[in-house]
Design a protein around this nucleic acid. Structure first.
Length: 196
DNA sequence: AACTTCTACAACCGCAACAAA
DNA sequence: GTTTGTTGCGGTTGTAGAAGT
């Protein structure tokens, strides 16, 4: 199965775009294009740069892998703490969370969370199972990881993260509208400045 | 050594929001 | 005001390599 899939990859989709892993040549073309023309206009990248890739694919490759300033490697315990805190506030707003972790992408954080959350979930369920065999079942009090309402006041100024990123697509930081959140932001600011 | 399971990561898909025509 | 194209986001899947049995 794996072998046959690999043999078939990379393939061309029904739209004619190439799919699958990027080659160093493609990376080079994309980097050259973005260096010359800047980010954005992804739909024209494929044509102009001679890449047989969809704009979506080009953007994703750039944002998650090629963009300068990306940190590679392990998420530090400090970053993990920030992710946990921010996830408690915003839920699965990965791109929002990523704005507070310079050099980290939403995809990276999402992957990290899924891996680790799944692991924790599994161990939690396993221990519950063990408990339930010996104890009377009682209502489970879960830590609240509720996302904010969809219309949360996300649109604010970017002062919060000023200096942390300089990409043009660095949009807006969520507003800090309670003490807890403000404390968290202070913690993040302190940790990011100390780590740099 | 062979096999299985787990983890990390890259990439794709579908959808929604937004802007331009 | 409507349609169409583009961009960005979140969810999901697939693969490689590491770790465990």
């Amino acid at each position: 199965m794996v072998g046959s899939l690999m043999a078939a990859w990379p393939v061309q989709g029904q739209t004619g775009w190439r799919k699958g892993p990027w080659t160093p040549e493609e990376d080079k073309l994309l980097i050259e294009y973005v260096n010359l023309h800047g980010e954005g206009r992804w739909s024209s990248v494929s044509r102009c740069a001679g890449l047989n890739r969809s704009g979506k694919s080009c953007r994703l490759r750039w944002v998650n892998y090629l963009r300068p300033g990306l940190k590679r490697g392990q998420i530090t315990p400090q970053e993990e703490g920030i992710i946990i805190e921010l996830h408690a506030i915003w839920g699965n707003k990965w791109s929002t969370i990523a704005r507070y972790l310079p050099g980290r992408t939403d995809n990276e954080i999402k992957n990290y969370w899924r891996t680790h959350f799944k692991k924790k979930e599994r161990t939690r369920k396993a221990s519950e199972k063990r408990k339930s065999q010996t104890l009377k079942p009682k209502p489970l009090v879960q830590p609240q990881l509720q996302p904010q309402p969809k219309d949360e006041p996300l649109l604010h100024t970017q002062e919060l993260i000023s200096g942390s990123r300089n990409e043009p697509n660095n949009k807006i930081a969520p507003s800090t509208n309670n003490i807890e959140e403000q404390n968290l932001m202070a913690m993040i600011m302190a940790s990011s400045s100390s780590s740099s």
